[in-house]
Amino acid sequence: MKKGSVVDAFVEGARNGYQIAVHSTIPNIIFAFALIQVLELTGALVLIGNLFRPVMVIFGLPGVAATVLMGAWLSMGGGVGIAAGLIAAGELTGIHATILLPAIYLIGSQVQYLGRILGTADIPTKYNLHMFLISLINAALAMLTMRLFV
């Protein structure tokens, strides 16, 4: 084990955090903002909103909130970016974001983790669907719970 000062450990952690932000988080958020603009300009955002409205209304959310969950499934940063883009576009409110936030983290980045974690953990692939469903159920329960409190 390498010994060093607390300051050295802090600086190394800050460097690593900076690298993650610059190479992962910020590009995901910028992509999410751009995606919302494309969906809005093409009219696809309205179609998505209409398609998912019956399900999302259960959670007290507009149909377009489904895009946040779809984005979060690919990347947590993307989900947050889509939520921010929809808030900026006036499609979501702060209350909607409050309901969505726990779900973003409960289902976040499952596609990425499928390869990074499950693939290296030697978990039989027959359990992947079960793990995805558990996360989705947890996210739904979290949104219902948040709806009760806001």
Score class of each variant (00 low, 15 high):
V57F: 02
L41Q: 13
V38T: 11
F132D: 13
T25P: 01
A84F: 06
I107C: 10
Q110R: 08
I104Y: 06
G85M: 07
I30N: 01
F31Y: 12
L101C: 07
L69E: 04
S75C: 05
G119T: 09
G119Q: 08
A9K: 10
P62D: 06
M56Y: 05
T125I: 11
Y105C: 06
T42C: 09
L61D: 02
L61Q: 09
P102W: 06
N16E: 06
G17H: 00
V150C: 10
I30E: 00
L136N: 11
S75Y: 06
I36T: 12
V68M: 03
I30F: 15
I137A: 15
V80M: 14
I20D: 03
K3E: 14
L86M: 03
G77A: 10
Y18N: 04
I87A: 14
R116D: 10
L133E: 09
G43M: 09
F132Q: 10
L114D: 14
G119S: 07
A142I: 06
A89C: 03
G13R: 05
L47C: 02
V46T: 12
I117T: 10
G90A: 02
L35N: 07
I36C: 12
G119D: 10
A121C: 03
R116S: 12
L35Y: 13
Y18A: 13
S135N: 14
T145I: 04
S109A: 15
L45Y: 04
A21F: 14
